[in-house]
Design a protein around this nucleic acid. Sequence first.
DNA 1: TTAGTTAAGTACCGGTCGGTGCAGAACTCT
DNA 2: AGAGTTCTGCACCGACCGGTACTTAACTAA
Lengths: 201, 201
Amino acid sequence: MSDSRRAVMGRPRGFDIDQALERAMRVFWARGYEGASLAELTGAMGITKTSMYAAFGNKEQLFRKALQRYGAGPAAYATRALEEPTARAVALAFLRGAVRTTTPPRGPSGCLTVQGALASSDESRAIHDLLVDWRNDAGVRLEERFRRAVDEGDLPRDADPRRLARFIMTMGFGIAVQAANGLGPAELDEIVDTALLGWPA
Amino acid sequence: MSDSRRAVMGRPRGFDIDQALERAMRVFWARGYEGASLAELTGAMGITKTSMYAAFGNKEQLFRKALQRYGAGPAAYATRALEEPTARAVALAFLRGAVRTTTPPRGPSGCLTVQGALASSDESRAIHDLLVDWRNDAGVRLEERFRRAVDEGDLPRDADPRRLARFIMTMGFGIAVQAANGLGPAELDEIVDTALLGWPA
DNA sequence: TTAGTTAAGTACCGGTCGGTGCAGAACTCT
DNA sequence: AGAGTTCTGCACCGACCGGTACTTAACTAA
């Protein structure tokens, strides 16, 4: 491994592919999949359409790569939250993370996976479905974590892990919309506190 | 008033303008503002582009009329809920209404005001802002209702009406996303029950 | 019948969409 | 140096975008 220093043939790429992807991700985040035009994407990436196609394939694959990067970066809080010791701490960390990510000091408000393609025309059905799966996967992982919490006695025996996970996911999605509506982190944190008032002891 | 039977000059309109608007609304609901093309809109409306422009002005005004119709029709639950006798009943009616409207037996899943233009390119910024205002207005009306509930002693003196309203709105938005994700009314009703567990006595 | 008014259908507008063909530039390998 | 390989910039593609000019159809008023 570590061929990164191996000399490669041909003209070397004239731009940082990671930085270009980061910028594309932010455009998709702000505009959604269909709302982001190639002109705006490549403009923000600082490269031409030709270079984008050579490096990423096409717009759809660029979005898929951007979504991967989003999951590993801004949305990593969702995975980290699962490591908290109690179900309540998981829920709190998850929602606080959602608040932080959807209200960055600079950068787009909201959540890429929600803004990406909630509604869309037929051509981008593939992206729409990809995002549905992405969001549902996050819910399933939360559900499994809560199920473990029941096993560990950290949640009451009669608690319904699936239901709790869906509730937390619903709050997360709602937070994304509220962030797009202009609410800031302080206001959203209040909402999170309110949501957890009824959390099973 | 009631000039509807007055004879009007010129060739009579060959389609039902109300029905056409209803169909346009459903296309916007499913596709969002930008995702709905004139071709698809007029196709569903059963008229030509020319007739649409003559009757509604342009795409943006068609959307505004469709949004009005949405507020008076599918989204009327939001206003009706305010008439419930207690704050808790208001919250429950609001969320149950959101569930029903976002999961119709036939017709698009989700909420038109959320799917419409969460993320969008610059050209449709006007529609984006219109929807932000629409959603925020709904929150303000809920807040006022909860404030009244505090005055009437129906909510505890220390309850924060704005915070509660924002929480309920957040749940409503989240429900819209979950509906778009494929959840059905039964599952969403469970989520609503979970959300109201911590509602102030 | 004729003039005036409004709607409908066709054919078209410039602009932008995502995507490419091609020539040349910049590199490695022999 | 020369061949082989890869990336870049420009010009361009057909398709579709929202929107419109113009002719014709269908009505009322005189």
